[in-house]
Nucleic acid binder design. Structure first.
Lengths: 244, 244
DNA sequence: ATTTAGAAATCTGGTCCAACAAATACTGGT
DNA sequence: ACCAGTATTTGTTGGACCAGATTTCTAAAT
């Protein structure tokens, strides 16, 4: 009982608004999911049904479905069909576990600059809200850096440290952004570091940050934190070509 | 069988280790990128060359290429072919681009604080990079605020103004974040404003921001911009009755 | 007659092929 | 150096077949 979208002469050539046909089908699929209010676990129409519904070739529908699959929005089992899922978070992580392509230098610099703006720039508000519990937590998190096993664990702890710092701001928008950027930041943290680097240098840098924080030394805090972020940049630029 | 007229012998059914054929091609593409040490900007072989190289159909290669495209690892333009890129961060943000529910007071404050950290906090870098063209563009964008028709158009222009400001930083990470937050920021901008408010107050505030910018008056710029963002907060608290 | 095990028909996604359209790079002539 | 035509490449379509899952039907057993 498809709604009256039968062939009533509506032979709009597939160039609607977006560029390619598969892009439009991707949009139509998202719209379909949204309009039909499909929840996780629900089934999508078969590919051939979608072909008729969207007036597109099966190859186009398949490529569009592949995009949604890559986005972690649908899951398709052979001979059974496609169902709605939500693996976007894990897909976001997979994007950066692609060891085929390193983080580009510009991405690295941009993200570190962004973190600097947030973390260093909010020093005043952090000091305003700082409580004893915050300092304790930071010390506790950082202490775990001394007993790490592998580099992945280390970067997780490093990330947790900075998130705990930002957490003081009680700003949901910033926390959400960090949540999304987590896989990128993790990769960036590992850049040019070894397990030993984490256990010594990173640990000490964090320690100095906490010390200045506990002393409510705003300028010192900003200096130590900025320095901490810059050191990562130095690690990166050492192994790549310079740009003009 | 297919055009196996070339060197036969190796009749390995293309199911090597991964499940589907397109998955294996995705893996082969990753391997190719890794082995050839392809960097951002380099070109990939044409689709038909990849077909021959991987002994796969063009459809399969296209679907595999679509996956890499969805992952933000390659960018393909008609006739020119596929080139390596690194838009993974952008894609990661795109995954979470929906769900614009009602703006609560805390959301408002958080987002405005976030914008303050970015825009006000980056004043130094903005002044470092500032060019005449930037000032001209900002004036031109703001002038459109004087001839708006409805409030949606006004908020779009308002947003464009701030994006143009941030654009000076040439920071992809920040631009991506703004892109994702755009629907929320638009709603925040409209909060407590009328068409007339935009044409007078907002216009004048923007004007002052540009003036201080053109005069390279960093403190004045920061003051005007911070003030501009804060005024929105006042508008919000006046008209809202909170919901539990 | 009811139940149920097995066989057949039908669907569905996965892969491939051939062809055409659109867009642009390349080539040759002036 | 410029212009036009050719050729190559991606984008899109339609069709075909396969292998496995699902459903339906048949027939044997209770």
């Amino acid at each position: 009982m498809n709604a009256g979208s039968d062939e009533s002469g509506i032979s709009i050539p597939n160039a609607l608004e977006s560029g390619s046909a598969v892009d439009t089908v991707v949009g139509q699929l998202r719209e379909l999911i949204s309009n039909a209010n499909l929840k996780v676990g629900d089934s999508l129409p078969t590919e051939r049904e979608l072909c008729a519904q969207f007036n597109a070739s099966r190859n186009t529908v398949r490529e569009a479905m592949g995009v949604l699959k890559a986005y972690g929005l649908v899951e398709v089992r052979p001979k059974v069909g496609a169902t709605i899922t939500d693996n976007r978070m894990s897909r976001a992580f997979e994007l950066f576990s692609f060891n085929t392509l390193e983080i580009s230098k510009k991405t690295f610099i941009d993200v570190q600059a962004f973190r600097g703006l947030i973390e260093v720039g909010s020093a005043e508000q952090i000091l305003d809200r700082l409580a004893r519990r915050d300092v304790d937590d930071l010390y506790r998190i950082n202490s775990r850096l001394a007993e790490i096993e592998d580099i992945n664990e280390a970067s997780e702890i490093d990330f947790a440290f900075h998130v705990r710092l930002i957490y003081i701001l009680d700003n949901t928008a910033i926390m959400d952004v960090y949540k999304v950027m987590k896989p990128i930041i993790l990769r960036i943290m590992q850049k040019g570091k070894t397990r030993r680097t984490y256990m010594t240098e990173t640990y000490n840098e964090h320690d100095k940050v906490i010390e200045t924080l506990a002393a409510r030394d705003r300028l010192g805090f900003q200096y130590q934190l900025r320095n901490h972020l810059m050191i990562g940049t130095k690690n990166f630029t050492e192994e790549t070509e310079d740009m003009p």
